[in-house]
Amino acid sequence: MATSYIPLLIILGVSVVNAVGMAVASHVLNPSRPTPQKAMPYESGMIPLGDTRARFSIKFYMVAISFIVFDLEAIFLIPWAVRMRELGWGPFVAVFLFVVVLAVGLAYEWKKGGLEWD
């Protein structure tokens, strides 16, 4: 039923209002006495050296790409999972093959060192 989504919209609206309200309330109420020291990034009391927007490890990209593959897999399994007991063995075999293909992909990534962090 589409009407059951109405309370969902209300709570999303309340959440947004709450978040904006918190930010605005503290902005209005709090004092502002800026100094050059307060405007400096806090790096354990040291004066920051170098640029933050530097290059970082490629492993984070690898994780993101693997995530897309395997999260999509979980999403693809959901429609089968809810009807699994009615559908019986045929779709089970199909899903099993699908999982095996992805498991081979995972094994390949593992073997190639895509999951290593040290």
């Binding site: 993101a64 999260d71 999403i75 959901i78 999972a81 809810v82 699994m84 007991r85 009615e86």
Partner: peptide, 19 residues
């Protein structure tokens, strides 16, 4: 994002039970 994969897969077992 890494643990979201395992989270989604653990939910699939629940969905199979409830349909």
């Amino acid at each position: 994002i890494s643990y979201e994969v395992a989270l989604g897969l653990s939910l699939i077992a629940v969905l199979m039970m409830t349909g």
